[in-house]
Simulated scan of single mutants.
Amino acid sequence: MPRRWPILPTLLVAAAIATMIALGIWQLQRAKWKEGLLVTYAAAAHKPPVDFPLDKNKPLDPYYFRKSAAHCYTPYDAISSAGRNAAKQSGLAHVVTCNAFSPGTSMDERKTRITFRAVLGWSDDIAAPDWKGGELSGTLMPDTQTGVRLIADPPVAGLQANEPPNLDDIPNNHLAYAGQWFFFALVAGIIYVLALKRRARD
């Protein structure tokens, strides 16, 4: 080993290792948070229905997996995506975007009210159902575009029920990610020490 470690490379490697360790710790914290969230979701399925969360500033997480109902005014952006029905048959889930406020709602009220997506039901036909909107009941779930999605149960006329939401579909890989970051930090440290030893021999 050299008598003096190179200052700049050592600082850079130390900073990189510290960052990896910090990311590993953060993933451990995320794992604990996710475990608590999954417990909340598991309990939510057995709770009474909730009023539809209309306020954009209201946290939605506690409502996921809860039963609720909403009125879908003027549905738009209809899409069909891969999905399964209650019998686990593969097919298409029919989804629309909905405004949760009536056309007569003031602009100030609209600014605080959410837009949501609704899974209307399942079929093996790619053609979207001719549905003009109306009352829907079902289960609240996360949605990457609008924040909340309502999986209709019962489905709209002409469609079958979608497969019910499943907690197993929510990934919880944070422990694995934490292990990866700690492993990367260990490998980086070993490689640097070996590099210093080789430098000393040369």
Score class of each variant (00 low, 15 high):
A100G: 09
F101V: 07
K56F: 04
W33Q: 01
S80Y: 09
V193M: 14
G138K: 12
A22D: 06
T97H: 07
N173F: 04
T10I: 15
L150I: 00
Y41A: 09
A100W: 06
M107H: 04
F182A: 11
R113K: 13
L38A: 02
F65A: 05
A118K: 10
V193R: 11
L60M: 01
T139S: 10
K56H: 05
V187L: 15
I126N: 01
I126Q: 06
K132W: 06
D168K: 09
D108H: 09
H174R: 02
L136V: 14
F65M: 14
D169C: 01
R30W: 04
D108M: 08
Y73M: 09
L28I: 05
I170A: 11
P59Q: 05
A14C: 10
E163K: 00
H94T: 13
V95M: 03
L23F: 10
N173M: 05
G134S: 00
M20S: 02
R4E: 13
A45S: 14
R113L: 03
P164F: 15
K47Q: 12
W181F: 15
L150V: 00
N57M: 08
K47P: 03
G36S: 05
G134T: 12
M107D: 11
P171L: 08
D168C: 07
A87P: 01
I190K: 05
D125P: 11
Q160P: 10
K32W: 03
N162P: 07
E109V: 04
G36W: 00
Q160W: 14
A31L: 06
N173R: 02
L175M: 02
G189M: 11
S106Y: 08
R199K: 14
P2S: 13
D51G: 08
C72K: 07
F52E: 10
P53W: 06
G158I: 03
V39G: 09
L175K: 07
L186T: 15
R3L: 13
R201F: 11
N99H: 13
L196V: 07
G91M: 15
K67S: 09
K197Q: 14
P53V: 00
P48I: 07
W181L: 04
I25M: 08
P48F: 07
L150M: 09
S90C: 03
L60F: 02
D77I: 04
P164N: 08
H71R: 06
A161I: 15
V50L: 05
K34Q: 08
A31Y: 04
P9Y: 13
M1S: 03
A185N: 03
Y177S: 01
K111F: 06
G36N: 02
R199F: 10
C72R: 10
L150D: 01
P103L: 01
T144E: 12
A128S: 15
A70L: 13
